[in-house]
């Protein structure tokens, strides 16, 4: 029982952090048709920025803010300089964002060196609560709460605000949104910057959870995010949320029995979804 609770908590915790990466990726794809291969790099920039700021200020709040700011800024520059020039050309977008990924990753390793940098959980969130045999790690609860709050906030934004209506309408038919007098390019930039900040937030939170940052964490989590959006359905916010929980839990449970296979299980899950429901659990049919 205690093992089960712990695995569930740890799976949910990982799932929430992947969700932060995946939801931005999926929104950007759904609205703009851009598959951002540098999304994991934004995650990593967030992680490094967070660790750097935390080591200097010992304030995790500042680390969170700095990480998100770093992600938003890099995302903004990236959208301006590259993506904006090639809207509508799917292949060129994949290629260009891959180039951006190379440069962003290499800039990090040029600044921080290729080795892992250790970090710690902020004192307030360190330790755990014990309920009989069940030990609940505080930081995991924290990530779950934050992830949940972000999910609620984004859901509220999408369903209630004008920007949300524009985004949902834009996913369905961009041309018609424009015809109603809305400059969709501005909305694109906004969503891109927002998605980048979310990915970076995921990075800041992931670093203390695994105790370090390293140069491989970007592509690793990006791949998990890909699996999530394939399972959940591209462009579906609800799909990203559910997909993240599935991927997080599946990874955690398998890791208990057979640690090596935790990624394999997710790849198999993805293959199954593709086979049975090619557009994902919540994907919109067709193109």
């Amino acid at each position: 029982m205690d093992v089960f609770v712990n695995l569930t908590l740890s799976g949910l915790s990982t799932g929430m952090m992947i969700f932060l990466v995946a939801s931005g990726l999926s929104l950007i794809f759904g609205l703009m048709g851009v598959l951002n291969f540098a999304h994991g790099s934004l995650f990593m920039w967030g992680a490094y920025a967070g660790v750097w700021v935390f080591a200097r200020t010992h304030s995790f709040t500042l680390a969170l803010l700095a990480g998100m700011a770093a992600g938003a800024m890099v995302g903004w520059v990236m959208e301006r300089l590259t993506i904006r020039r090639i809207y509508g050309n799917v292949v060129a977008q994949i290629l260009i964002t891959t180039g951006v990924m190379l440069v962003l990753n290499e800039l990090l390793s040029a600044t921080f060196g290729p080795n892992i940098i250790a970090t710690t959980v902020p004192p307030l969130l360190a330790g755990s609560w014990a309920f009989g045999n069940i030990v609940v790690v505080k930081y995991r609860v924290f990530t779950i709460v934050v992830g949940f709050l972000v999910a609620l906030a984004v859901h509220f934004m999408l369903s209630r605000t004008r920007v949300g209506i524009i985004v949902r309408a834009g996913v369905e038919n961009q041309e018609m949104v424009q015809v109603l007098g809305i400059n969709i390019r501005q909305v694109f930039s906004l969503v891109f910057v927002f998605g980048s900040a979310l990915a970076a937030l995921g990075g800041v939170m992931m670093a203390p959870a695994i105790g370090a940052v390293n140069s491989g964490m970007g592509i690793e989590n990006q791949m998990l995010a890909f699996i999530v959006v394939v399972i959940g359905g591209m462009g579906s916010f609800l799909g990203s949320a559910l997909g993240s929980v599935i991927v997080g839990l599946a990874g955690a449970y398998t890791a208990w029995f057979f640690p090596e296979a935790s990624l394999a299980v997710n790849v198999v899950l993805m293959a199954l979804v593709l086979l049975l429901k090619p557009n994902g659990l919540f994907g919109m049919g067709g193109e």
Binding site: F37, V90, I94, F226, V230, L263, V267, L274, P278
Partner: peptide, 21 residues
């Protein structure tokens, strides 16, 4: 077969996952 019948961009993502596998 898994990826190309959905969308070409899926090929990019799914090849990455399989290679990692």
């Amino acid at each position: 077969y898994l990826s190309l019948r959905v969308k070409d961009v899926y090929y990019a993502m799914i090849t990455l996952a399989f290679a990692e596998f």
